[in-house]
């Protein structure tokens, strides 16, 4: 299981402020806390800094890497910002978030995946729009899988994101994702699957509960990576317990470690 720590994102108010003030200490503290809490990757997203995203990305990547030696998830809609981040990424194999089946996006991002030998999040959408059903998603997914693997990207480096939509505006939104994850797992057993969790609960109360349960449900279907807040100890505890129950934790060692770290203490 791959946990991508989502906190360093300038759409979050505290991070936005810290980035604007070039507050090295705060950014480094958040990076360190996420890794200590179990994040395997640290997401870096400064997409809201539309006027100087490239410079901000460079500063963020350098700042984070002075604090932690974790690989980074370079998260941006802007290929120039992604490349700026990749050029500086020093630890492990970076992850690009994201490529899609949209022609323009695909053609911009693929060369970066190949040049920097990265892992890549592949969003199940293309120029025909946002997918509704699991089968819609699978069509985009199949197409992406073929193009990426033919281009030389290893299956192990592909992370399909099924595209999570709010259940508040479409009763079947959660179910379609669960079905998609199941289908991807059956058809492409060697690729990974990743998602964020907060979209699903948009517009509803007690969002944490829905997010936590959706994590367990998607993992049951085969999801193996999450973009989440690793400082949310309940979520992290559930993620580990869920993996243990799904037979992914020999001798329950990870579960016991998490127990000893106190994540289940109330």
């Amino acid at each position: 299981m791959l946990i991508i720590g989502e906190l360093i994102n300038t759409s979050r108010k505290a991070i936005n402020e810290a980035v604007e003030n070039r507050d090295v200490e705060y950014i480094q503290r958040i990076a360190r806390e996420q890794v200590e809490a179990g994040a395997n990757y640290v997401d870096v997203n400064c997409g809201t800094m539309v006027f100087d995203e490239v410079e901000t990305m460079e500063w963020l990547v350098n700042t984070v890497q002075e604090a932690v030696q974790a690989p980074l998830c370079i998260d941006s809609p802007n290929p120039r910002a992604i490349e700026a981040g990749l050029t500086l990424a020093r630890y492990g194999q970076p992850l690009i978030n994201s490529i899609t089946g949209e022609n323009e996006r695909y053609n911009e991002i693929l060369p970066l995946v190949l040049k920097y030998k990265t892992k890549v999040v592949a969003l199940c959408m293309d120029d025909s729009g946002m997918p509704e059903t699991a089968e819609d998603r699978m069509q985009v997914g199949r197409n992406l899988h073929q193009r990426l693997t033919e281009a030389g990207v290893a299956e192990d480096d592909i992370y399909f994101d099924p595209l999570v939509k709010p259940v508040s505006t479409g009763d079947k939104a959660g179910l379609e994702v669960l079905d998609t994850v199941k289908l991807i797992t059956e058809e492409f057993p060697n690729v990974h699957k990743v998602c964020g969790l907060s979209n699903v609960s948009f517009g509803l109360p007690n969002r944490k509960i829905l997010n936590q349960l959706f994590m367990v449900q998607t993992m049951t279907m085969g999801m193996d990576s999450y973009i989440l807040n690793p400082l949310d100890t309940t979520m992290m505890g559930y993620a580990q317990a869920s993996a243990t129950l799904l037979g992914k934790d020999p001798y329950c060692m990870n579960y016991l470690n998490v127990h000893r770290k106190g994540l289940y203490d109330k």
């Binding site: 709010p166 508040s168 505006t169 948009f202 517009g203 509803l204 109360p205």
Partner: peptide
């Protein structure tokens, strides 16, 4: 007032 939610509004 968060007394009603998106699906109810719809």
């Amino acid at each position: 007032a968060e007394d009603m939610f998106v699906p109810e509004v719809m």
